[in-house]
Design a protein around this nucleic acid. Structure first.
Lengths: 142, 142
DNA sequence: GTTTTTGCAAACCATTTGCAGGGTC
DNA sequence: GACCCTGCAAATGGTTTGCAAAAAC
């Protein structure tokens, strides 16, 4: 889905050393469709015969998040998952059927957020919009 | 902040038995300003000399959530927190200074969500908008 | 060579569950 | 009295941390 090199370069530019385990995690993340958990990455790494400790998976996902190429999302179930994403976009639609995610952007949202800030008196620093539903494929399959 | 009786009645109407521990948790939740975690409620109960087991705190918060008077939110840190809320509204602004939360509603958001559904081909079943920032009080204090 | 990173195992923390006793309807 | 609820303690599952060895720069 994503070019592994993009993730590796992002780590590099963020000042992280490029190590084998980090390349392994980046490769798995890049090829993953939809959202994933740290445990899934660890399991996949093991399945591919790559030696990556659990702790390193967490540390690398954290690094990728700091490098803005992976984002942590919260599923409705309360689970923590991650998705590879473009730094510029920051909202996702998540398919509850297959786990696929798509990035979303909507100009009007900024106006909504601004308006809420004005009405509540808050200075809004951050906002997260997460949408859950069934993607077209799952809909026609179901 | 909230009338404890509202929470208790909600449990009653949802078919839960009204027990001492549940009333204790409802009382604490009703008086709490801002968001709280299960651990905070348990600690507060202990501080007040109320005998409420940890497990019961979780079970009661779950019941209150099912009764639609409490909602679970995810803080940017990834922590799970709860807020007492009006069943009709479903978005919150969270103050990163004092933890205060306010309910928010915006008619235009529905249009944004609909439009995203149309553009992505998803049938959107659920959406969550969470806003984080500094409330007026914290802003003038800082 | 210095500094960062890794893997392992142990530590942690939040949350859930099994079960016998006690409370509510 | 039947069924629900509670507390406890143990189990669970995800995530973090300490540390000595290994790798990157």
């Amino acid at each position: 889905m994503t070019d592994p090199q993009v993730l590796v370069s992002a780590l590099d530019e963020a000042g992280y050393r490029l190590t084998g385990p980090r390349r392994s995690v980046a490769g798995i993340v890049a090829g993953w469709a939809g959202h994933f958990t740290a445990a899934e990455i660890a399991r996949e790494a093991e399945g591919r015969g790559l030696r990556v400790g659990r702790a390193t998976v967490f540390r690398t996902l954290d690094a990728l998040e700091r490098a803005s190429v992976v984002e942590r999302i919260d599923l409705p179930s309360g689970e923590h998952a991650y998705v590879a994403c473009d730094p510029a976009h920051h909202h996702h639609v998540v398919c509850s059927g297959c786990g696929r995610t798509d990035e979303v952007e909507d100009g009007r949202l900024a106006a909504v957020v601004r308006s809420i800030g004005r009405r509540t008196g808050y200075r809004i620093d951050e906002h997260r919009l997460e949408l859950y539903g069934l993607c077209a494929t799952c809909r026609s399959a179901g």
